[in-house]
Simulated assay, not measured.
Amino acid sequence: MIEARVQEAPFDAGAELIRLDTLGGGGVASFTGLVRGDGGLTEFFLEHHPGMTQPAMQAIAEAATQRWPLLGAILIHRVGTLRPGDPIVFVGTASAHRAAALEACAFLIDQLKTDVPFWKRETFADGAAHWVERQAADDRAAARWHDRAE
């Protein structure tokens, strides 16, 4: 099972984990990202291009299943207007062994941050708003997977 979804609606991380649990593996790993409220952030808005975003998410999920012996992978990324504390991203993996599930999960979140096109705007309590620039730290995290020989 490989799923990659872009949606406005909230997701239930617990329900997604149960779906991965039922695949019969020995390990399930997950990451749930929440909107931070740093610096008085009041709104986080995400735009995307459906014709680009969905295929890019699917491609990194398929890359993970080729690299690790996964039984399943679920990627969910929300778009639209979100508030601090809202869940924004879910990545879950299932495998016969914990190492594959954990490594694939880390790989997927790193690649999701760099290889999938989202445009993010932050709005703050003082009315200031700006589009978020790509972060060098995200590029470094994603690059570490290209440096590893499997």
Rank of each mutant, 00 (worst) to 15 (best):
A73K: 06
R78H: 13
G27Y: 10
L41F: 00
V79H: 10
A29Q: 09
D38N: 02
I60R: 01
M57F: 06
V79E: 08
A29R: 11
D38S: 03
L23T: 14
T53L: 10
G80Q: 04
W68G: 05
D12W: 06
G80A: 02
G80F: 05
G33Y: 06
G39T: 02
F31V: 01
T53A: 14
E47L: 07
A29V: 13
R67Y: 13
R5L: 12
L46N: 03
S30R: 01
T42G: 00
L41W: 01
L82F: 06
A9R: 12
G40Y: 14
R5V: 13
M57V: 01
T65S: 15
V35S: 00
Q54K: 08
G37K: 05
A63G: 12
L46P: 11
L71I: 14
E8N: 04
P69Y: 14
M52I: 06
L41R: 08
H77W: 07
G25M: 08
G37H: 01
A9G: 02
L46Q: 04
W68H: 00
L46V: 15
G25A: 05
G37S: 07
V35L: 02
L34G: 10
H48V: 09
R67N: 04
T53K: 13
V28P: 06
F44Y: 03
V35I: 01
T42E: 00
L20A: 11
L23S: 13
P69N: 15
D21E: 14
Q54H: 07
A61R: 11
A61S: 15
H48G: 12
L34N: 12
V79L: 05
A56I: 12
M57S: 04
G51Q: 15
A61Y: 13
R67M: 06
E8C: 01
R67G: 00
A63M: 13
M52F: 12
Q54T: 02
F11D: 01
P10M: 13
M57T: 00
L20W: 08
A15N: 10
L17S: 01
L20Q: 11
R5C: 07
T22V: 11
A64D: 00
R83E: 02
E8V: 05
G24L: 07
M52Y: 09
E16M: 04
Q66C: 14
A9I: 06
L75P: 11
G40A: 12
Q58M: 14
V6R: 03
P84R: 04
G14H: 02
T53H: 12
G24S: 04
A73E: 04
D21A: 14
P55L: 06
W68K: 04
T81N: 09
A59L: 08
G85L: 09
G27W: 11
R78K: 14
E16Q: 07
A9M: 11
V28L: 12
G72C: 14
